[in-house]
């Protein structure tokens, strides 16, 4: 009977139900910690831990069973990432007018951020694998995970690094959702709507972009553009950076 756990139906159901619960909670209590994605991730992991205790099986083997269905949903992240070409195309006027400014800001900004993130990881004494996982976090999941995995050397190490990167990308979004508006006020970033949008899209990905749309139209458009362009830039400079720092 328990063999249902290793069919795709289980993983698909678990993914949808935990996200749905997250969404309902968020509707009732719109506090940042109830971000549906965050709740979904925590609930999903808790269910797997609970089952692992109940069935006396290691958590890793329960995750492998979940993954059969989870991977089916995960696959759709590829077309969904590709779909961002449409909002980008709709605002191609902004891209055309400001491409140099967008590209320079993101390229220089990300390079500076990489040095600081690397220094902080060292300061906190993170292991090599966790440090690697911190580097591609400016890119959205479908782009960041493969990069993280390759830098870590693929295989089991690659899986570990990309799962940490996956969590980092989710925490980025939760932090921007929770503190984005306050940070804007503290650091007086609201006088430059373009920079604000670029920063929200880079640091908060899709959820940061949604927040940027709430702030204003230019901010929202810039955030969706930056998500795309930063993916490209991360792809260009993060492997080189990792090599220079002796992580690869």
């Amino acid at each position: 009977m328990l063999s249902f756990l290793s069919t795709p139906f289980w993983g698909i159901f678990l993914t949808i139900i935990v996200y749905w619960i997250g969404q309902q909670l968020f509707k009732k209590f719109p506090i940042f910690i109830f971000q549906p994605l965050f709740i979904g991730m925590v609930l999903g992991i808790l269910v797997l831990i609970g089952l692992s205790g109940l069935l006396r099986q290691p958590i890793v083997s329960l995750y492998k069973q979940y993954k059969v269905g989870g991977d089916l949903i995960f696959w759709f992240l590829s077309p969904a990432t590709m779909a961002f070409a449409v909002p980008l195309y709709k605002r191609r006027d902004l891209v055309k007018r400001y491409w140099l400014r967008i590209f320079t800001s993101l390229f220089v900004g990300l390079t500076i951020a990489l040095f600081i993130i690397f220094a902080i990881s060292r300061l906190f004494g993170l292991s090599k694998i966790a440090t690697i996982a911190m580097l591609p976090q400016a890119a959205t999941t479908a782009i960041a995970l493969p990069i993280s995995s390759v830098i870590a050397g693929g295989g089991q190490l690659g899986t570990t690094a990309s799962s940490i990167t996956a969590m980092a990308v989710i925490v980025n979004a939760v932090v921007i959702y929770a503190l984005g508006s306050q940070i804007v006020r503290w650091f007086r970033l609201d006088k430059d709507p373009m920079g604000l949008g670029l920063a929200f899209g880079t640091a908060g990905h899709a959820i940061g972009s949604a927040k940027a749309i709430e702030i204003g139209e230019v901010e929202g458009a810039m955030a969706s553009i930056s998500m795309v362009v930063i993916g490209l830039i991360v792809d260009l400079i993060v492997p080189t950076f990792a090599k220079l720092m002796g992580l690869m």
């Binding site: 965050f38 992991i45 831990i49 329960l62 979940y66 991977d71 759709f76």
Partner: peptide, 21 residues
């Protein structure tokens, strides 16, 4: 794009495979 939050969930749950670290 509207479903992107849901699509992120499996990658978040993948942390269950790295709980030791």
């Amino acid at each position: 794009i509207g479903l992107i939050g849901l699509l992120f969930v499996p990658s978040g749950i993948s942390l269950a495979s790295s709980l030791d670290l």
